[in-house]
């Protein structure tokens, strides 16, 4: 599959930016930099997270995603740059606005579910009575009301994951940051969480999603940013990114083999499905209308299906990251 994605090499070598037209931004980072003794974890990182969207923060391991997330959560400080949240400079008052599910996460094993959630909620700034009300709503929603007095160590892993998710969202944060949210979740819980994430977005929350699971990005994210080696190498809406990485390649299923001569098309591959049925991958050398291709195809073969081959996020990701490391 990969071999078929012949992106222009220039795309991979410099960061691409696309204009975002939305007005309100949940989070804007400008020139955020973090240096350690031996390496730079973040180098002049700019990101813009539109409000009420699901934002994918992508990148290979060690790219600097977690560092950026920790800076947004004020767990560590940046060495340079500025972050604004809903138009305000990042400050300790924002802690209550953010719900954070770290990749390295856990619960107090000896504490009871209820106690634990109340404690977390109060650390986020809720009063005790508020906390109890909100936690009860969530426990009811997940149908785990009777867990209130259970100790975490007596819960199964999947049960603990639900509690963990509740602890992230119970204080109704406007900005939810999920670092590899599905790692360690079983498929049932992963689906449950996915549904919740979509509902939270509908209710007006903004969600930053850090992951290297590209299927989830494909399904959920509206906007993405790709960080590699501490720099942003790609940013934009999922549509824009995908459109940009269109390669004018089309998949055709047809009866009767053909070969395309001439300067307009490249026949990348043709495989036989059964008898005289074939599937071909055709690339247009110039950006023309697909209608032209269909017309030309009907002259040489009988077309059954015709579709554009749009690159998956995974393909874009791998090409860009590989391109960087080949430099």
């Amino acid at each position: 599959m990969l071999a078929s994605c012949n992106y222009p090499s220039s795309f991979a070598t410099y960061p691409f930016k696309f204009l975002t037209i939305k007005i309100v931004e949940a989070l804007v980072a400008r020139g955020v930099t973090k240096r350690y003794a031996n390496h730079t974890a973040l180098d002049q990182v700019d990101i813009t997270v539109p409000e009420k969207s699901i934002f994918g923060l992508l990148g290979p391991n060690g790219a600097g995603k977690t560092t950026l997330i920790r800076i947004i959560n004020q767990i560590i400080n940046s060495d340079g740059g500025e972050i604004t949240i809903f138009g305000q400079k990042l400050n300790p008052d924002h802690i209550g606005l953010i719900g954070y599910l770290p990749e390295e996460r856990g619960l107090y094993k000896k504490l009871k579910v209820g106690e634990q959630l109340i404690y977390f909620a109060r650390l986020k700034g809720l009063s005790k009575s508020e906390a109890v009300l909100k936690i009860k709503v969530w426990l009811e929603k997940f149908e785990i009301k009777d867990w209130w007095n259970k100790k975490v160590e007596d819960l199964s892993k999947g049960m603990a994951q639900k509690v963990q998710f509740i602890s992230t969202v119970m204080h109704e944060p406007k900005l939810i940051i999920l670092d590899e949210p599905f790692s360690g979740f079983d498929p049932v819980n992963a689906q449950l969480i996915t549904d919740e994430i979509l509902q939270l977005k509908q209710k007006g929350s903004t969600i930053i999603f850090s992951t290297h699971r590209m299927e989830t990005v494909e399904d959920l994210c509206d906007d993405i940013v790709l960080i590699n080696k501490s720099k942003v190498i790609l940013e934009g809406t999922k549509k824009q990114v995908k459109a940009h990485y269109r390669t004018n390649t089309f998949t055709v299923e047809h009866r009767g083999a053909f070969s395309l001569n001439g300067s307009l098309y490249d026949l990348i591959r043709q495989e036989t499905l059964e008898d005289d049925f074939h599937r071909s991958l055709v690339k247009m050398r110039t950006t023309g209308s697909p209608n032209q291709l269909i017309q030309d195809l009907t002259n040489v073969t009988e077309v059954f299906s015709f579709s554009e081959k749009v690159p998956t996020m995974s393909e874009i990701f791998i090409t860009l990251v590989k391109g960087e490391s080949n430099e």
Partner: peptide, 10 residues
């Protein structure tokens, strides 16, 4: 138990 990062975000 890795609860610490959850806490230090608050």
């Amino acid at each position: 138990s890795k609860v610490v990062e959850v806490i230090v975000s608050s």
